[in-house]
Design a binder for these strands. Structure first.
Lengths: 174, 174
DNA sequence: CGGAGAAACTTCAAGCTTAAAATTGTTTTT
DNA sequence: AAAAACAATTTTAAGCTTGAAGTTTCTCCG
């Protein structure tokens, strides 16, 4: 799923008009696009993970979890965190355990519904997160620095279209 | 690192000319772009994982490994696989163990250099992979179906620029 | 030749991730 | 007010991933 070998085949979409005449199921163009997308995100993600570990002895999931909590000063329900991060609930349980042990998070049971756990950043956790977030923004800025502002805008728009396409397909499948 | 909340702030690059006058380190635009990129690739990747599991009781790493081997009929050295997949060598060891047990892969020690392991798809492995690859191509095609061919082309180009930017940044940092 | 060093891989410890099963607690039906 | 259904989490088993440390096997220089 990684690699993006780029073996110089002309993409189909250069001549969309002849497309209907081609082999019935030629999915090469989409596959190449997907591979390139994945390569980009893998490159960035690995670098972010590496730096979080080196500079903060932390991990991306922990950073993400704290990022979700940052804009919820009154805390957030576990299930909501799980949905927003798009990971399984069991995953959150483990992350929260560790971040609570290390003093970054506080947790409390909702008195009116004792099934519900609410977590929030502690003052310490917030301070740590802010340090990490500032560096994180610098890293991303560096990695994207070679992209002209106009290209960034185009990419934003095209990715929005892709996202819509993917979500529509997932909805059809469900 | 996931989510892409889209809280409707006008991107910086809409007016690149005033950029120099803004706050010294406003990285919001890049962050938003990164988040959106990550959202797209996470959505696609999760769906592919889910279907590999449901339809083939397999996983993405296994599929990727077999994909690398597919175009190397004479087999490939472990280290080369590791580099192409951009994962750690120790990772490949484990994957190869399991795929060899299940009969998908054969492995052999190079006689002239007994440190080197060469792996290749077995006939069974190749047949299994071809089934998976065909379905995989269909899934991606579906997920990307809502993207017009012209948009696909633009996205290819813009992602190429982003990839260059990231690689350049990584090279600077090294 | 003989050892230093490099190369290819494996092992290890720790952490992330998921789906499915199990718990605990609440709500809705009879 | 049981019973059944539903909800929020946690637990469990299995697999992926990494960096670092360890092993085996070459290679090369003196």
């Amino acid at each position: 799923m990684t690699g993006d070998d780029e073996f110089a085949i002309a993409p189909d979409w250069l001549d969309g008009e002849t497309k209907a005449l081609e082999a019935p199921h030629d999915h090469r163009a989409e596959l190449r696009l997907w591979l390139r997308l994945l390569t980009c995100s893998t490159l960035v993600e690995s670098e972010v993970r590496r730096r979080l570990r080196e500079e903060f002895d932390s991990t991306l999931p922990r950073f993400d979890l704290m990022a979700q909590l940052e804009r919820a000063p009154d805390g957030m329900v576990l299930g909501e965190v799980s949905r927003r991060m798009m990971v399984s609930p069991g995953n959150i349980t483990v992350l929260v355990e560790r971040l609570t042990e290390s003093g970054h998070l506080s947790r409390a049971t909702l008195p009116t519904d004792r099934r519900v756990q609410i977590i929030a950043l502690t003052a310490f956790g917030r301070a740590e997160f802010e340090k990490m977030a500032a560096r994180h923004a610098d890293w991303i800025s560096d990695l994207f620095a070679g992209l002209a502002p106009a290209d960034g805008g185009v990419l934003m728009d095209e990715l929005a279209k892709l996202k819509r396409s993917v979500i529509a397909s997932l909805a059809r499948g469900a």
